[in-house]
Design a protein around this nucleic acid. Sequence first.
DNA 1: GTTCTAGAAC
DNA 2: GTTCTAGAAC
Length: 794
Amino acid sequence: MMDSKMDMEIDDAPKPEGEQDMGKPIVLILVGAPGSGKSTFCDNVMRSSSRPWVRICQDTINNGKAGTKPQCLKSAASALKEGKSVFIDRCNLEREQRAEFVKLGGPAQVDVHSVVLDLPAQLCISRSVKRTRHEGNLQGGRAAAVVNKMLQKKELPKLNEGFSRIVFCQNESDVQAAVATYAALGPLDTLPSGCFGEKKQDTKVQLGIMKFLKKTEVPKDAASGVNGGQESVCPQISKENRPCSKEAEDVSVVSASCGKEVKESEDNILTLAFPSISTADFQFNNEKASDIIVEKVDEFVGKLENARLVLVDLSNGSKILSLVKAKAAQKNIDPKKFFTFVGDITRLYSRGGLRCNVIANAANWRLKPGGGGVNASIFSAAGPALEVATKERAKSLLPGRAVVVPLPMDSPLYSREGVSHVIHVLGPNMNPQRPNCLNNDYSKGSEILQQAYTSLFDGFASIVRDQPKLPDKNPEKLKSGRSDLRDWSHTSLSNHLQNGERKDKRDDDSVTERSKKCKGSQGEIDADFNGSSSKRGKVSRDPNNIDGSTSNSWGSWAQALYKMAMHPERHKDELLEISDDVVVLNDLYAKAQKHLLVLARHEGLDSLADVHEEHLELLMTMHTVGKKWAEKFLPEDSSLVFRLGYHSVIIKELGNFNKSQMPNLDGLGQIAGSSCGYGHIGNRVPSMRQLHLHVISQDFNSSHLKNKKHWNSFNTAFFRDSVEVIEELRNHGKVTVKEESYLSTELRCHRCKSAHPNIPRLKSHISKCRAPFPPTLLEKGCLVIAPPDKQGDP
DNA sequence: GTTCTAGAAC
DNA sequence: GTTCTAGAAC
């Protein structure tokens, strides 16, 4: 379960049954050369810790003498069973040496940590030399060779070995800090997951050895380092300076092996971090979801080369994480290709030390920020750039689908975390409080969740496949390495869209065109827009005069409204009224003699679909303002009758969806819900931005009213009366929006309800029809009319 | 959101 | 031939 805490802090560990008072034991695997201070570390922690610790030391396990690895394992296992935490005090420099100790962690009952005492080789050697001299076993020079040899084989631990936490210590103060952290850990405490103190370049050890052994000059190349990766152990040694003594051969071996090490470095592995889909807010059953995750992961890891998947959850006590971890272990899924990770998905690198190129978002169908949980967190961490980039790719998402969005380089997620793509995924919903609830229909739900993971992993696979060259994942270096990635993302656009959101060619082209146009002239666009103070008509007709970077062409109108709502001061000439909550303006293409818009000024309130309980007051304000303006016109022309209301969300259809195959349903939730069954349905895109209340006179006497859609958007259930919307919001906390099919229904007079074959005939009729308005409108107070005694007055 | 226009409807 | 609509284009 996702909890609401967004930072990785010390969380309460889950309390397994029967262990009410016990926290999670820790297996702390120390990694370090002889003389690096492993035993001292353990002693220092144990001296002041309130948590029961046992030190498993291979050198002394056999009644004070050196023992075997199985002895250590056995001893560690029995200590863990008693609920004690253990130190594995042996060098553990190689992955293989650590592997069996890592397994002590089991599926989830024990946290496996590593503290790496990666101190200068010189220091380790000098300590070892002193010690071996004391013991009389080794000559000083031989001790140095042993340490050096061990360090050659050193493989720094990585999270995917099964560690939940790794702390790298490069100097004494790092070590002291790590001691303090573990010493302060009470029996019930847990520590945040991730890699800490990792160093970018690892040339010091070898340089230290060189200095120590040969006192050679350090080549300049080596000092600057060549690889930015976390394990680039590759000092360049020129021929002139290459050591030639026997002891120094070891160093050149290290150098020779560098190429291979770098190639296999985890930095070159593309990583997808994904949250569990649908199990948080959408309340999908954890057991079922974990089965699906493991099944899908198992299916995909086989296909992935040089890539891996990481399931991330925020909470240390994550049920879904434990379930998946256990089931993945049962299925023998390669832990290098898939593992679980506790942390904030928006801070995996900066706080968790885990580099992920791609993160998945448990999105909502509108692909908008908000809603809490992972979605809110990712949109917030990525900044507005993600919203913009997302809009360029898709406007909405169907359950079971995913859409790949390349993250612009100005996004903090890109620059700070090294995330190049976000894949939005929409899973099935089992929460009756959320749209498209499947009412516990797990056969359908499971099918959709499987589709969701397939779409997600396919999306990731397309990124892996299409990536010609890995971007430099060192966030500090990202900016310079971005151009190739951008080029790549364009060429593979269609490929990505196939994973769930298909746009037709026209739209694709227009998007591409637009972004091209905008790149070169962003400054001009803004200047033009801001400068043309009272030319909204021009602005609205020419998409490039709006904000090209954030909209596609037909979305410009919506963008213009949004801009007015956000910056009314720039549009004073066009606005009738400006207040904190709303602005009022004449509709540019008025569909009646009087047609005003009352625009909400709240950010994130794009349409009726975004309206929730907390907006009740705002909607009431909008109504009051709209009514006030209607009443203002009545004395001038008492024959006017006004109606106040909202359009339901207009959805632009881009795919090969055939309306006749779609049941005529009320409520957008049902549309989306039913549409999962229609695989052929294309992309459906809301066409407006910024909630606005129409205040429109009922004469509909306007040359701008030209087609069926115009008429029906004001004269069918597609038009939601303000009073009813408010009532519904008050009673149900949300507003249902009506199906778009109303827009193509037959043309009927809004007064006498007579049908008419076309717009001209209808308009001719309504200009003469004086039938009273339908009683329901009158009764519900949907109309603003002059007082009876004034009616008919000029 | 509107404009443009091919082709259906009359 | 003219009117009107629907859908592409913007």
